[in-house]
Design a protein around this nucleic acid. Structure first.
Lengths: 115, 115
DNA sequence: CATAAGCGAAACCAAAAGGTTTCTCAATAG
DNA sequence: CTATTGAGAAACCTTTTGGTTTCGCTTATG
């Protein structure tokens, strides 16, 4: 129980920032069900391997991808769990476009103050 | 029917970018159920009125707030609808932390390719 | 062993982001 | 009519972001 370690593992980049960039969102999508090395990933984008590599690091800092070294290559894999923070943040606002039931639901299940 | 007007009204800033900044998320939260003028809003933040004003413009470009002029003041109001884009984007990934039913649900109700 | 492949680190760069202060201008209050 | 108030526009500054190219290290492969 040292400090604030409450589930988020706060790094330099958070989930909100990580998904703000379109390229990074595409990378996530690409990694949906196959894990792949940087070179392959960058083959899908109109930019250098190094640039993609940087995006991957940001995603990794936000906990959205996990890297595994296999020989000389590094495989990147989707780690979608942190997206739940987003879902939770959203849940606060959902009541505005949904029905009364959702407002109640919000009270019941998400009564912690996010942001 | 002039151009691409497909619900998003694409401006310089999109929703993902708009909510990436913590200050802007707080502003949204603040506007939850009361609309208020810039001076009042900025009173809640450790920065100049002008800075907050800029954040508000970004939020407005993303469609997340609406401004109404009343005499010499401009009232800002939450407009949560665009957050649905976020919810939709998320729905693609939800199947990974939820059960099989959700995967099915995704197929049934959100079968459009987002990002 | 020599060479090639896979990839991050470093140095560098232009543009965008997030602030600030100053100016201007319209609306309201005395 | 003249302050004063509310607030965006402009100009400016610093840091971050998203890229690039070059370099070097590690792990195969002929």
């Amino acid at each position: 129980m040292s400090k604030a370690n409450t589930a988020v593992l706060s790094a330099k980049h958070d989930v909100f920032q990580a998904i703000a960039d379109p390229t990074r969102r595409s990378v996530l999508k690409l990694l949906t069900d196959r894990e792949m090395p940087v070179t392959v990933i960058s083959g899908h984008f109109p930019m250098s391997r190094t640039a993609v590599s940087k995006h991957l690091r940001i995603l990794a800092e936000a906990g959205l991808v996990k890297e595994t070294k296999v020989g000389r290559e590094t495989r990147y894999k989707l780690q979608p769990e942190p997206l739940q923070q987003l879902k939770q943040w959203l849940s606060y606002y959902e009541r505005f476009w949904d029905n009364k039931m959702n407002a109640l639901q919000h009270f019941v299940e998400n009564d912690n103050t996010v942001d």
